[in-house]
Design a protein around this nucleic acid. Structure first.
Length: 770
RNA sequence: GCCCGGGUGGCGGAAUUGGUAGACGCACAGGACUUAAAAUCCUGCGGCUUCGGCCAUGCGGGUUCGAUUCCCGCCCCGGGCACCA
């Protein structure tokens, strides 16, 4: 027997799979499909680190099991290759992003193949490839044609370091999510996608899918639906004098507190609008308003100290007709609700804090008022429309031209797609904050596809979210150059049956891609409304010490080194064994040793195989059936760590045997194959099989055979374990109670006292109460 | 502040319709094999103990024959949201 040599056998089986196209999947309508999906990686220059294989291996394990269960499994891979790091690298070095990306993808591909994943490489996609982004552009035009893409001049978050407009989602605590620089506000014409029109569908759709609880809750919070009433308060510009001309609308979720409203609080933004339409406020008030607005423009971090100023006007509470003051405050925000509230200090902590500071009355007075009694019922969402343009080079060009003659934006016809990214000399955005495309006059100045007259191209590009918003559709039909994907193929493959990814993507990527899919479903281009039937999420792999792995901290572990030292199967199995899949774990190289020893044992077991044996080992048979049951159930529940520990228990038991039946060894290899596929294939061939193990049937267990013939029962007295008895499984309750009472230890503890009660829990214990 | 997770040996972690706490693995200790070492194999491994037991799953109570598990009140760690009216 040779020694277990991962280097040799892993290369061998990877070649075999590639040559035999083992994992290339056909659209076979006679077979039940299973679509398992990972979040496709961004091909960074650093290559894979050991965090990547966690979700990949998990879904590979599931995909391999499904194949053995006879499913037609689509397990695709691709690269989300538009993105800032490559562009920043281009700015620094002048190297074209397309070239750098090509190199990085080659490196990622090598590493992923080295790990033995059962991806269908024939379907690999790359979002920055014009053949792919042709359809990203085409899909964007569908939004445009349906009025869901529009341009809007609005203050945007601006990162002065990256020189890029950021979506609200990319701003963390007032700073750029990528580089940490404090974000400024700037006015820019931006392409927007009207995701708010889909707020209700995005919310309702969550009821029909099986998402990990945390993901569902985070999506719901982000959409942020709240039911409330809009109530009109008429204003008196001169207190005490009714004029019936002016009013303010407030939003409240608690109209029943209206009798306790003692002032109206207005945001600086709304007050500014009043000034613009002729409100004559005092200089002091104007100064206050400008001051608040300036602070908000500078930073998203708001003052936590509440301030305000009496506006010098009053409002009439429609419930009790009382005249109450209007205050302009910093704690009411212009972009929330109507930008004005009725303040009820008796009920609301913030209103109370403000009222106490400025000595405003606090009145507790609740009514049975409903939403419609003093106003009209409205439903509000926190969700905002999606800023869909970036003033950058490395993204999909937006396929629109501006034509004065035609009166605005004209989409490119399909035969002019893809609109390719032109080569530019410099990748740096202009000082005006425009994409470098804006400097390409020849490219910018074009003909209007509608009227043939002179027109200018849009120079913004799409955000990095664009390509990943529909990639799961492309996998169904990746080489189609007539459509983004054919209806027939989408019908067969969609929805994704199981999508696993990081918690960091459960809000934005998931929401955006669901939005695209629901929209495409609405216009008849996609057969299902919800793209993902099931969504799970993995925990991060942290560096030793609990920190995130990052290049700057120099604590990144490269899988190349681990594979060179231990082999891919050990790395895969160890990553699955480390800890609970949905929790963060620290990388610890020591743990690899134990898994390598385990795989060595499996390898060495082949020495014990004896085809002819007289007596069946019943104990081992029972353990085998228990293991088959546990491993199967654990994989389905992503409890990979306990699945592997069950396999270790089985292998340890087999190791104690003098001889081993092939009928026991081969199911072990099948159970192990999703985790350590190369080793399993090799040993499978040692057993004399000529074909791959990949499509062999997943072992089944017999429930009767999982039951042990003898069981050990604990005997408790007043809840404390005092003895154990071993009985045949079929022993009657009465007999067991007798046996328990007959125990010497029990007699000693009873000291002659009569038991009050005897509780028997089948297969577990006997509890005697005295 | 609100919403999710989580807290168990030296370490990673098992155990859930309440039923023998510490599976499996690492590290460590002793032994076998070896001239020796590595590798491998065997044994031990929560703490205390007068060797009868006692104490232990973040802390304090409660329910129960029995609580890591359920209830009440707290503390700490991780993540998300946040003057959202």
């Amino acid at each position: 027997m040779r020694k277990y040599n991962p280097k040799l056998i892993e290369k061998k089986w990877q070649k075999y799979w590639e040559k035999n196209k083992t994992f290339e999947v056909k659209d076979d309508a006679t077979k039940e499909k299973f679509y398992s999906l990972i979040e496709f990686p961004y091909p960074s220059g650093e290559g894979l680190h050991v965090g990547h294989p966690r979700p990949f291996t998990a879904m590979d394990v599931i995909s391999r099991k499904k194949r053995m269960e006879g499913k037609n499994v689509l397990f695709p891979i691709g690269f989300d290759s538009f993105g800032l790091p490559t562009e920043n690298y281009a700015i620094k070095t002048g190297k074209p992003p397309a070239e750098v990306t090509k190199k990085n993808i080659a490196n990622f591909t090598r590493q992923l193949k080295m790990l033995g994943y059962s991806f269908d490489w024939s379907r690999a996609i790359d979002t920055s490839n014009p053949k792919y982004y042709k359809w990203t552009q085409w899909l964007f035009l569908q939004f445009f044609k349906h009025g869901l893409a529009y341009k809007k001049n609005q203050p945007i978050n601006w990162c002065p370091k990256d020189k890029i407009g950021l979506a609200n989602e990319e701003v963390v605590n007032g700073c750029c999510e990528r580089c940490g620089t404090p974000v400024e506000k700037r006015n820019k014409e931006q392409w927007m996608l009207a995701i708010t029109k889909y707020a209700d569908k995005l919310l309702a759709g969550l009821k029909n899918v099986d998402y990990i609880e945390r993901a569902r809750v985070q999506q719901e919070n982000w959409i942020g639906k709240s039911e409330g009433a809009e109530i009109v308060f008429s204003l008196r510009m001169i207190p005490g004098q009714a004029d019936d001309k002016h009013s303010v609308t407030v939003f409240t979720t608690r109209p029943d507190t209206i009798f306790g409203a003692t002032f109206v609080a207005v945001s600086a933004e709304l007050a500014k609008k009043w000034l613009e339409v002729g409100w004559q406020a005092s200089e002091e008030v104007k100064k206050y308003i400008d001051n608040i607005l300036a602070r908000r423009r500078a930073s998203r971090e708001e003052d936590l100290e509440k301030t305000g100023i009496a506006a010098g006007i009053t409002a009439i509470n429609p419930a009790n007709k009382k005249e109450i003051p209007v205050w302009i405050t910093n704690y009411v925000l212009g972009d929330v609700g109507t930008g004005a509230i009725m303040a009820v200090p008796a009920d609301d902590d913030r209103d109370r804090e403000f009222a106490e500071k400025y000595n405003l009355p606090i009145i507790a007075n609740y009514s049975k008022a409903g939403f419609e009694d003093f106003g009209k019922k409205v439903i509000r969402y926190k969700l905002r429309d999606w800023v869909f343009s970036r003033q950058r080079y490395w993204g999909e060009p937006i396929p629109l031209v501006n034509c004065l003659h035609c009166g605005g934006w004209v989409p490119l016809p399909e035969n002019e797609l893809p609109l390719k990214l032109p080569k530019v000399a410099k990748y740096q955005p202009t000082d005006m904050g425009e994409s470098p495309l804006a400097t390409m006059e020849k490219w910018v100045n074009t003909k209007c596809p509608q009227c043939g007259g002179p027109a200018k191209r849009e120079t913004d590009t799409m955000p990095n979210w664009a390509g990943s918003s529909w990639y799961f559709l492309r996998y169904a039909d990746p080489h189609n150059d007539k459509q983004f994907a054919s209806q027939e193929k989408l019908k067969y493959w969609m929805p994704v049956d199981w999508y696993n990814g990081g918690m960091e993507h459960v809000v934005l990527h998931l929401l955006y891609s669901r939005f695209w899919n629901i929209f495409l479903h609405d216009i008849g281009l996609v057969p299902v409304s919800e793209p993902y039937a099931k969504r799970t999420a993995h925990g991060l792999i942290l560096a030793k010490g609990g920190e995130k792995m990052s290049k700057s901290k120099g604590n990144v572990v490269n899988p190349d080194e681990v594979v060179a030292k231990y082999g891919a199967d050990t790395l895969r199995t160890y990553i699955m064994f480390m800890g609970p899949f949905d929790q963060a774990v620290e990388w610890d190289e020591n743990g690899l040793v134990g898994v390598k020893r385990f795989l060595d044992k499996v390898w060495n077991l082949q020495e014990k195989i004896a085809p002819k044996i007289e007596k069946i080992n019943l104990k081992l048979q029972t353990l085998l059936h228990q293991t088959i049951q546990k491993v199967g159930e654990d994989i389905e529940a992503m409890r990979f760590n306990t699945a592997i520990s069950a396999l270790m228990v089985l292998v340890n038991e087999m190791f104690k045997q003098e001889i081993l039946l092939p009928t026991h060894y081969s199911p072990l290899l099948k159970l192990l194959s999703p985790f350590a596929p190369h080793l399993a294939e090799e040993l499978w061939s040692v057993l004399g099989y000529k074909k791959t193990l990949v499509f062999e049937s997943w072992p089944e267990y017999n429930l009767e055979l999982t039951k042990e013939s003898m069981v050990t029962l604990a005997v408790q007295i007043n809840g404390k374990v005092r003895d154990e008895i071993i009985v045949a499984a079929e022993t009657s309750e009465e007999e067991i109670k007798k046996l328990a009472l007959a125990s010497e230890k029990v007699k000693k503890w009873l000291e002659g006292k009569e038991p009050k009660k005897i509780i028997y829990v089948k297969g577990k214990l006997v509890s005697i109460v005295v």
